[in-house]
Simulated scan of single mutants.
Amino acid sequence: MTDTVVLQVAGRPVARYVPRPELPARLSPRPCLHPVTTLAGTVVTELTPADHTHHLGVGVAVPDVEGFNFWGGRTFVRDQGPTELDNHGTQRHTAFQLCDPHGFEEELRWVAAGSELLRERRAVAATELTDTAWALDFTFSLTNVTDSPLSIGSPATNGRPGAAYGGYFWRARKEAAAPDAFTAEGEGEPAVHSRSADWLALAGTDWTLVFAGATEDTRRDPWFVRTAEYPGVGSSLAPTERLPILPGETVVRRVVTVVADGRLARDEAATLARKAVSP
């Protein structure tokens, strides 16, 4: 892996971004952030873990763009289930418009079967919140660059209930015990999965991640949450129906993630989430 970018907060390295990962096609190669750490240095991401080798730290992953897999691994096929298909796309880094230790702006091409389907503009920034917490501000804009309508789907729209993953995704650190997941209204995976919430927290042994939607569309997307099988949180671009993108049209989402040392209480998580997304 080459051409890495190291993000810093308060003079400390907190994340490494790999724009050109050298990975097999089956993993749907795509730029990713790993490792991401707390300010105290605790790693809170995983890259190609044994349980799901196509999970790549933090990034944007979509299992179905007009039938092409930009998530990695098997593809869920209606009435057939998870199936190995030769349908994997690649997110190709084109250029950085801005790049420094505090963040970057990047252009990417989403390519499958030799054709560019989407062009992405990605903006990422790392900012200090407190002495023990910082925020990763992640915006992605997907533009249909073809002459035909495209649509984004998920295993849920293809017949697998409860599996509406696709969009921003954070593969968290796996520990001996499963992390706790909670929002302002609910606690536990069954209570928060597939539901919309202004913020959602994932708390491990000595760390907490707080995910907050920073635009109206992003807040409307339900959260995809896993704690028991593996620790991961993402957004759901296509929770119940496919998301259409007309030629020249752009879909924009912005998620701000608080990365904190220690296990935050509900009121602490809410306070940091509000601070992270405030202008």
Rank of each mutant, 00 (worst) to 15 (best):
P222M: 09
D51I: 15
T227F: 07
D51A: 15
K275N: 05
D51Q: 10
P231S: 09
A201H: 07
R92E: 00
Y17T: 08
R20M: 12
D180V: 13
S194A: 13
T271Y: 02
G167M: 10
T37V: 06
V192P: 00
T157H: 02
A176V: 12
P101W: 04
G73V: 15
L118F: 06
N144W: 01
V145I: 09
V58H: 05
R160P: 02
A95C: 11
I152E: 00
A15Q: 10
F96K: 13
A191E: 01
P29H: 15
D267R: 14
L129G: 06
L209N: 04
W199I: 15
L264C: 05
A126L: 05
R78L: 13
P279L: 08
F138N: 05
T42C: 12
T205D: 00
A201W: 02
A184N: 06
P179S: 02
F70A: 10
E106V: 13
F169S: 14
W223P: 03
V124H: 01
T208W: 00
H93V: 13
P31V: 12
A238V: 07
A95S: 06
V192I: 04
V77N: 02
G166F: 09
P29A: 13
A181L: 08
V65W: 06
G166C: 11
N87C: 14
L98T: 09
I152N: 05
L117I: 08
P19R: 08
D51G: 12
L47V: 14
N87V: 15
G81D: 03
L264W: 01
V210K: 06
R74V: 08
R119I: 01
T183K: 04
L246A: 15
E229H: 09
R121D: 01
P31R: 05
P49T: 15
E66A: 15
V277D: 01
Q91G: 09
P155Y: 10
R274W: 01
R92V: 07
K275M: 15
T157Y: 01
A95P: 03
Y17K: 12
V77H: 02
T240Q: 05
F182N: 10
E185V: 15
E268T: 11
D86R: 14
E46A: 13
R74S: 11
R121P: 10
R254Y: 03
V210I: 07
P19I: 07
T4W: 01
R173P: 02
G57D: 01
E268A: 12
R226H: 07
P239T: 08
G81M: 09
K174R: 15
F211P: 04
L264N: 02
F182H: 06
S28R: 13
G89D: 00
A126Y: 00
Y230S: 14
L237W: 01
H193I: 12
Q97N: 09
Y165R: 10
F182W: 07
G81T: 13
E22Y: 08
L129A: 11
A203L: 06
E175L: 15
S194E: 04
T2W: 06
G41T: 03
V43Y: 00
L142G: 01
S236C: 11
L243W: 04
L202V: 07
T2N: 05
A40I: 11
P29Y: 10
T48G: 08
R195P: 02
C32R: 09
E128F: 06
A113H: 14
H54Y: 04
V5M: 03
S278T: 10
W110T: 04
